[in-house]
Computed example of a mutant assay.
Amino acid sequence: MSEFYEAMGGADGIRKLVEAFYPKVQEHPLLAPLFPEDIAPVMEKQYMFLTQFFGGPPLFSEQYGHPMMRARHMAFPITPERAEAWLGCMKKALQETGWEPDLQMAVLERLKGPAFHFINSSSN
């Protein structure tokens, strides 16, 4: 396991982050329309992906194969504004974890790359 994953609290820490994050997504006017009403399967996939992304067990790959996250997100119109909104929701969720501010910032910084990589639509 990576030090990053361990610093985040391992499986429990990742679960806590995902559970804090998705209510914010569901309430966000730019993001909510992209997600199904039953958010539980999305949350589980996010938990598996973040576990793997931050150096824990390769849960996502074991269940679904290579993440190929950009390809998996192509069906959804992801604009720069939506990427920023996603990161904003994540920042709020990170603040609720109680993790050290430096760790929160490091996690957010690490997620910026993928968030902007998924952009596939221009601004409206």
Score class of each variant (00 low, 15 high):
1 M>E: 11
3 E>C: 06
5 Y>M: 02
5 Y>L: 05
6 E>F: 02
7 A>F: 03
9 G>P: 13
9 G>I: 07
10 G>W: 02
10 G>V: 10
12 D>K: 13
14 I>H: 02
15 R>G: 04
16 K>L: 14
17 L>C: 09
18 V>A: 06
19 E>H: 10
19 E>G: 03
20 A>S: 13
20 A>I: 03
21 F>C: 03
21 F>P: 03
24 K>L: 15
25 V>I: 13
25 V>P: 00
26 Q>P: 09
27 E>L: 13
28 H>C: 03
28 H>P: 00
29 P>N: 07
30 L>G: 08
31 L>S: 01
31 L>R: 04
32 A>M: 07
32 A>R: 12
34 L>Q: 05
34 L>E: 10
35 F>S: 00
36 P>M: 08
36 P>R: 12
37 E>F: 11
37 E>S: 15
39 I>Y: 00
40 A>R: 12
40 A>P: 02
40 A>S: 13
40 A>M: 13
42 V>Q: 05
42 V>E: 07
42 V>K: 00
45 K>P: 02
46 Q>I: 09
46 Q>Y: 02
46 Q>R: 06
46 Q>W: 06
47 Y>Q: 08
49 F>N: 02
49 F>Y: 10
51 T>E: 00
54 F>G: 01
54 F>S: 00
56 G>W: 00
57 P>C: 05
59 L>V: 03
61 S>N: 09
63 Q>C: 05
63 Q>Y: 04
64 Y>P: 02
65 G>M: 08
65 G>S: 10
65 G>D: 09
66 H>S: 09
66 H>A: 13
66 H>R: 12
67 P>L: 05
69 M>L: 15
71 A>L: 12
71 A>M: 15
71 A>Q: 14
73 H>S: 04
77 P>V: 08
77 P>R: 10
78 I>N: 01
79 T>K: 00
79 T>V: 07
80 P>R: 08
80 P>C: 11
80 P>Q: 10
80 P>V: 01
82 R>F: 08
82 R>A: 10
85 A>N: 02
85 A>Q: 03
85 A>D: 00
87 L>C: 05
89 C>T: 03
89 C>P: 05
89 C>G: 03
90 M>R: 01
91 K>L: 08
91 K>A: 15
92 K>L: 14
92 K>H: 08
93 A>I: 05
94 L>Y: 03
94 L>I: 07
95 Q>L: 13
96 E>D: 14
96 E>C: 12
97 T>N: 06
98 G>K: 12
98 G>D: 11
98 G>I: 09
98 G>H: 12
99 W>Y: 12
100 E>M: 09
100 E>C: 01
101 P>E: 12
101 P>W: 13
102 D>Q: 13
102 D>P: 04
102 D>E: 15
103 L>K: 02
103 L>W: 03
104 Q>P: 09
104 Q>D: 12
109 E>Y: 14
112 K>Q: 12
113 G>R: 15
115 A>L: 04
115 A>M: 08
116 F>D: 00
119 I>E: 04
121 S>Y: 14
122 S>V: 14
123 S>I: 07
124 N>I: 15
